[in-house]
Design a binder for these strands. Structure first.
Lengths: 87, 87
DNA sequence: ATGATAGGCAAGCCGCCACTTGCCTATCAA
DNA sequence: TTGATAGGCAAGTGGCGGCTTGCCTATCAT
């Protein structure tokens, strides 16, 4: 999961899903292009979504020809607890 | 900072400093070798510490020929707040 | 003074990762 | 049914990151 968070484009995808959950691949692509002027290809974003899904940060639901992506922040909870100082 | 957390060896270094703060480079090397059987060279750990310092996760204090390294978890606080769901 | 200890600097190698490219399948509207 | 839309699969490429290698400086003990 740490490696999933290491890429700035993937973090922007999480930002986008945090702002508006349940977007499709094309929605994410166009909104990233709008906001951040990054012209990442559809395949690039798709692969990023695969990585985020493998990390458990994004889940998806398929409906017809659309596939909606949802943010899941529960893996981030454990992240904070790891290096807490005991003092 | 995310890239600093992406490497498993660097995360083990943070684990080590969380358990015993203020270690020198050689202490970290030997203890990592002990616990995790990873025979990373001194230079490798040194470069990892540089990365962690650049991310603001580790600070250091020099005293004589020793250089002590300290964990700083404050950058991790902001990490959690980023993708909280507002519902 | 000399060796041992603790660490730094810089160049080179290599594998992985992000991205592209090309083509394919599936669903929906006309 | 045909074209457009939404997405998937897989191979190839280039650059960056982790690590090594070699050599150097600084501090301390004897």
């Amino acid at each position: 999961m740490f490696k999933a968070l290491a890429d700035p484009t993937r973090r922007k995808i999480l930002d986008e899903l945090a702002e508006r959950d349940g977007q499709t691949l094309f929605e994410i692509c166009s909104r990233l292009a709008m906001k951040y002027q990054l012209q990442s290809s559809r395949q690039a974003i798709s692969q990023h979504l695969d990585t985020l899904a493998a990390a458990g940060l994004v889940s998806s639901r398929k409906d017809g020809r659309y596939k909606f992506h949802y943010l899941d922040t529960t893996p981030l909870q454990r992240l904070t607890e790891r290096w807490h100082k005991e003092n």
